[in-house]
Nucleic acid binder design. Structure first.
Lengths: 101, 101
DNA sequence: AAGTGTTTTGACTATTCGTGTCAAAAATAT
DNA sequence: ATATTTTTGACACGAATAGTCAAAACACTT
């Protein structure tokens, strides 16, 4: 179940790059990147896009990891988490079908 | 596809209550309630709980409406919205199965 | 049309939260 | 032991959120 942090940590370690290097590319302090990799901080959308570019992986895949992480975070501690996600899905599907018209 | 705003507006109008009355119970200005009912503002969790109590409906049902609204809002404009919701679902299911142990 | 009650709007304020820096401590590798 | 890298936590700042207030718009009745 790949969350963003684990994914980019693996990629970075495979290439044996220090946090410093990747953080520089993202133009943030390495401390933040460290926290992102360990799930203590959320990345911004921009950072995700840059990370996909940096590691040359599919942007939409990384965006899915990132967005789903945020969603999980949002429903955390809620009894009705699962139900809410399912209802949200239906709402999105409904909106789509409407906008298509 | 009931979102929170529509739901509580219906309930309030059925009982022919002015915004003022319900807002007083929630301890907020009626302006906010007006905006919540029309989806211009998000309710807080506390307000949702109080609304369920006030209208004597199942708290968890209203929480689902509210939470799913927030989720939809969060994925709005994202190409991968649906996919992210599905992945989030799996992540939540996985967490559950893990915590049960 | 005037008058009353209700709802909506928008400008403004306060508080909370997100995003970041920095420097020191802890861990890892040489 | 020293270098390098990573983690931690205190802090700053800007943006987003949650709210008030008063006026405008709307809907009824009479």
């Amino acid at each position: 179940m790949d969350n963003l942090g684990e994914t980019i940590r693996k990629l970075r370690e495979e290439k044996e790059l220090p946090l410093r290097t990747v953080a520089a590319f993202l133009d943030i302090d390495q401390a933040i990147l460290s926290k992102i990799e360990r799930g203590q901080r959320n990345a911004t959308r921009e950072q995700v896009v840059k990370l996909a570019e940096y590691f040359k992986i599919k942007e939409s895949d990384l965006l899915v990891s990132w967005l789903s992480d945020k969603l999980v975070y949002e429903v955390a501690d809620e009894q009705v988490a699962l139900k809410a996600l399912q209802v949200a899905e239906e709402k999105v599907k409904y909106q789509k079908s409407k906008s298509k018209k």
